[in-house]
């Protein structure tokens, strides 16, 4: 067995007296497609924030490629190869859509490789990414001119632009039409086939089930199930957690 790409050990997070995460253990293998589900407020986004350094978890440890990430700032985790999209898109509002993608290209891909990409090369990569999510025609637009759906696509494209080893997509598909959901799932699977490990957080069950090779369920800040999607979905506790809502 090779070491996992991402290892989460006993991670806990509190907001004041409120326990948002408790005793989370999770290994994500290299090349895996993992689905992460749970009711609203169960701590999924909080877990992503702790993994990516947006929040500090007081308890537990996160390691990436065998390296402990304790206290490492978010931008360094991104440079190591972890990328995330935000649940509520957070575009750079004063930059154009293409420039939004330039930021991770400049600050992650370029910083990581040490290669000074020629401007034309960066432009080409921007264009490829925009084509990938179907935003080519919006390249010069400002984020405020995008629809909610386009904003989500931009958010996902920006995470992809950092050329990650691990991509965590936090509800990238909310509000998308069925065919758009299918497109994004197909896109994520294609990325995965190129070697990117992907964690997908999603409420749309059809997307989760068609995407995931493994499914993890969070309820009230605890992991209550972890296994093959079909088995997990039949799990009595999971059913209770969802139907009990």
């Amino acid at each position: 067995m090779s070491a996992p790409l991402l290892r989460v050990e006993n991670v806990g997070k509190r907001f004041g007296g409120f326990i948002a995460l408790e005793g989370i253990n999770l290994d994500v293998a290299n090349g895996e497609r993992l689905g992460l589900i749970g009711p609203n407020g169960s701590g999924k986004s909080t877990l992503v924030n702790c993994l990516c350094g947006t929040l500090r978890n007081e308890i537990g440890r996160v390691s990436f490629e065998g390296r402990a990430l304790d206290g490492l700032p978010a931008h360094q985790r991104t440079r190591l190869g972890m990328a995330r999209s935000f649940q509520l898109p957070r575009p750079f509002t004063s930059l154009s859509v293409a420039e939004n993608l330039r930021v991770p290209l400049l600050y992650t891909v370029k910083a990581r490789s040490g290669i000074t990409h020629a401007g034309a090369d960066l432009d080409a990569r921007c264009h490829d990414l925009l084509a990938l999510v179907g935003l080519e025609s919006k390249a010069t637009k400002r984020p405020r001119d995008l629809t909610q759906v386009e904003m989500r696509k931009l958010e996902l494209a920006r995470a992809m632009a950092s050329d990650p080893k691990l991509l965590i997509a936090d509800e990238a598909m909310a509000g998308l039409s069925q065919s758009e959901v299918n497109d994004i799932v197909a896109l994520l699977i294609r990325m995965n086939e190129r070697g990117v490990t992907i964690v997908l957080i999603e409420h749309i069950m059809s997307a989760v089930m068609s995407f995931s090779q493994r499914l993890v369920v969070l309820v009230s800040g605890r992991k209550i199930a972890d296994g093959k999607p079909d088995d997990v979905i039949r799990d009595a506790e999971v059913e209770r957690a969802y139907l009990g809502q």
Binding site: G53, P73, H75, T78, A83, F86, R90, V103, Y107, T108
Partner: peptide
């Protein structure tokens, strides 16, 4: 936050 997540 988004800047950090993009490697800035």
């Amino acid at each position: 936050l988004a800047a950090e997540a993009s490697g800035v």
